[in-house]
């Protein structure tokens, strides 16, 4: 990886406040293009807040930060059009089919029919599944549809909060393949998860979030034993 290239995420002493509570208390983070990194830590440590900060949804109160080369203080809306945030919900329209959901998100960025078709192919949603209303899909199929929407939106930075939640073993494996493919094609992925064993082989780097602070984990093999957090 070229360390001289501009990082996709760069935070320096960044503080974020919810109400009067500092959810992020001066964090430093640098994420390069094409990296897949894992945010780990106990509930309430600030993992989701860090994802929301990177998505431009949570304002930066102090310190400096940039995402995709754009300033987190002054260009939050421009940042949002470059990132995809997938939380516990999928953000899909239940009455519309898979293809109609993709077509809607494609229309918001001017994506071509070919791009939409390619996203369907890549996520295994082409042919029959494309015409099924989202409300009739399984949890894994809905997740794949949400990720296909991110592809269609041409998200450069994927922010995923517990992406394996509610998926069966096969769907989890499929998701892993999708994320590896995404990083190979240049996307950057930041994942918040408690499933340390699963991510040990996938994430290039792990960062522990504790009490709004970040502690780098030296090696992906140095994972916290299962059961913690």
């Amino acid at each position: 990886m070229d360390s001289s290239a501009a990082p996709v995420v760069e935070l320096s002493d960044a503080v974020a406040v919810l109400g009067s509570f500092p959810v992020l208390a001066g964090v430093d983070l640098r994420v390069e293009a094409g990296e897949l990194i894992l945010l780990r830590g106990p509930n309430g440590a600030g993992k989701t807040s860090l994802l929301r900060l990177c998505a431009g949804l949570l304002p930066i109160s102090r310190g400096r930060g940039s995402v995709c080369g754009l300033d987190l203080t002054t260009q939050r809306r421009a940042i949002r059009s470059r990132v995809g945030l997938l939380g516990h919900a999928n953000g899909l329209y239940q009455d519309l089919t898979v293809h109609e959901n993709l077509r809607f998100w494609g229309a918001t960025v001017g994506a071509s029919a070919q791009e939409i078709g390619a996203a369907e192919q890549r996520m295994g949603l082409a042919a029959r599944l494309a015409t099924v209303p989202v409300e009739r899909l399984s949890a894994g199929q809905k997740r794949r549809t949400a990720l296909a929407c991110m592809l269609v939106r041409r998200a450069q930075l994927w922010l995923l909060d517990e992406p394996h939640a509610g998926l069966d073993a096969a769907a989890r494996d499929d998701l892993d393949t999708v994320l590896i493919d995404a990083t190979r094609s240049g996307a950057t992925v930041i994942v918040a998860s408690h499933e340390l064993e699963r991510w040990a082989g996938l994430a290039a780097r792990q960062v522990e979030v504790v009490g709004g602070h970040l502690n780098p984990v030296r090696s992906t093999l140095e994972t916290t034993p299962p059961g913690r957090g």
């Binding site: 949804l57 940042i79 949002r80 059009s81 919900a89 953000g91 329209y93």
Partner: peptide, 17 residues
């Protein structure tokens, strides 16, 4: 309701539209 059922409204906000 169609925007809040699966938090599509949040997705619209994230998309920066």
């Amino acid at each position: 309701a169609v925007e809040t059922d699966d938090r599509a409204f949040d997705a619209l906000a994230v998309a920066g539209l």
